[in-house]
Amino acid sequence: MMPGPTNCPMNSQQEAALLLDYCAGRLEAGAARDVERHLAECARCTEFVAGQQALWNVMNSWQAPPVSADFDRHLDGRLRETDSLLWIERVTRALRPAFARPPLALAAVCLVMAAGMLLRNPRASVAPSVDSHARMEQIEPEQVEKALDDMQMLRELSSAPSTDAASPKTL
C-alpha cells in the first residue's frame, strides 16, 4: 500500500507522523513492515528516519531529576489548608443570600460601625450626663448675678462723665 514515491510520507507533515510512529516503535507489525518496504526505495524517508532516531538518542540523555522526598508531605499540608478553606467558603456561601439584599447589608454595616464607635469610646454618648446637668444648674445663677453686677457698674460709669464735665463749670 505505502511503498512507492507517490505515497511518500514526506510529501506532507501529516503523513510524516507515520515515520515518527515508526521511529518510536508505536506501529503495529504490519504497518512497520510497510514503512520498511518504503524506506528500502526512498532515500528521503530513510534520511528522515535516521535523523529522527539520532535526535531521539540525543534527547534520551536528558533525564528529569528524581522527585523530592518531601513532595507528598508538602502537598498533604496544602490539601489540609484547602479543606479548611473550603469549609470557610461553604459557610460564606451559605450566608451570602442573607447579605445579598442591600437594606440588610446596609443595616449590618451601620450596626458594625456603631458597635465599633461604642467600643472605641465607651464614655461618649449622645445624651448629656446627670453630672453635667447639675453643674450647669449651679453655674447659671452665679453667671446671671455677675452679669447684673456688670450692667450696674457700666450704668454708674456712664453716668460719671456728666458730673465730671459739670465740675469745671462750677470751678
Binding site: 500500500m1 505505502m2 505515497n7 510520507p9 503523513e15 507515520l18 510512529d21 508505536r26 506501529l27 503495529e28 504490519g30 504497518a31
Partner: peptide, 8 residues
C-alpha cells in the same frame, strides 16, 4: 493512510 497505532 492507515495509521494502525497500537492504542485505541
Amino acid at each position: 493512510m492507515d495509521r494502525r497505532v497500537k492504542e485505541d
